[in-house]
Amino acid sequence: MSAALPVLSQEAPVLKVATTEYPPFEYVKDGVLQGDDVETVRTVLQAMGYEPKFQVLPWARAEMMVRRGNADLLFSLTSSPERERHYLFTAPISEARDVLYARKNAGLSWTSYNDLADLSVGVTAGYSYAPEFMAWLMQGESQVVTMNQENPDLAGLRMVAMGRVDVFICEQTACDYLIETNKGHYPELSRVAALPGVVGDERFFRAAFSRKRPDARALRNEFNQVLKGLGLAATD
C-alpha cells in the first residue's frame, strides 16, 4: 500500500496596493487599515484570487510607487487625462463631492468662481480637482495656498479655522469626518463648515492599476467584472 502524497498548499499571489490615510474611505485605527474603500478593494482582490499587501504612504509617495511600477494598485483617486498616462482606472468604488469650507462667521457664499476673487483658497498638493476650477485658479484671481503637510486636509481645515486661509476645497465626506473626529483635540474646527455648492460635478473615486504591469488591462477588466458581480460598484 503506497503512502499518501502530502497536500501542497498554494498561497494566493500578492498584489502590492498603495494608498494614503483619507478617512472615512481609508484610515489606520489600532494599527489596522480600514474604511469603506479598503473593504471594497480587499474584497474584490481576494475574490479575484489575490492577496492584497497594503502600504499606507503620503499621497505623493503612493502615486510615485505605482507610477514607477513598484506597487501594482493605487486607491482612492479620481481619474484625469494626465493620470490616465500612468494608470488604468477601475469602475467607481465610491462617490466624491468637492466643496469649499469657510469659517461660519465669515459671511461667505459663492455661486461662481469669480465670487472667490481676492480670497485665499487652500488646495491639497497633488490632488485632482474639477478642470474648470483649476483653470480658474490659474488665472490668478485668488491667492492659492497649497497644503503639503502629512495630513493636508486637516491642516487646511485648521488654517481656515485660524483665519490663515479664507476657504479650503475638500471632499465633503472626508472633511466632515475630520471635523467631527478631531474637534475634541482641535476645538477651533467647530468654527468651520462647508459652504453650499459643489465645485465641479460630483465625481467618483476609483482604484488604478499601474501601466508598468504588462497584464494591467486584464487585471483592470477582471476587477471591474468582480466589482459589478459583487454589487460593490458606485453608480457611474
Rank of each mutant, 00 (worst) to 15 (best):
L74C: 08
G140W: 05
T78M: 13
T78A: 14
E141D: 14
W136H: 02
E180D: 14
Y50T: 02
A125M: 12
P92M: 04
R68E: 15
Y50C: 01
A102V: 01
A71K: 01
D98N: 14
L119A: 01
M162R: 15
G156W: 00
Q55Y: 10
A47R: 15
G49P: 04
D176P: 04
A161W: 03
Q143I: 10
A130S: 11
T173V: 13
H86T: 10
S112Q: 13
M65L: 14
G107Q: 06
Q143W: 10
L100R: 01
Y87G: 06
W136R: 04
N70L: 13
V56Q: 06
R67P: 05
E84H: 11
D115I: 05
A161V: 08
D176N: 12
M159A: 14
L137P: 04
D118V: 12
A174L: 11
D153A: 13
L77A: 09
E171P: 02
P152Y: 04
T78S: 11
I93S: 01
T43E: 07
Y129T: 08
P152C: 08
I169T: 10
V123R: 05
D98K: 08
Q143C: 05
N70P: 02
L119E: 00
D115S: 06
R103F: 04
V56R: 08
D115L: 05
L45A: 03
G156R: 01
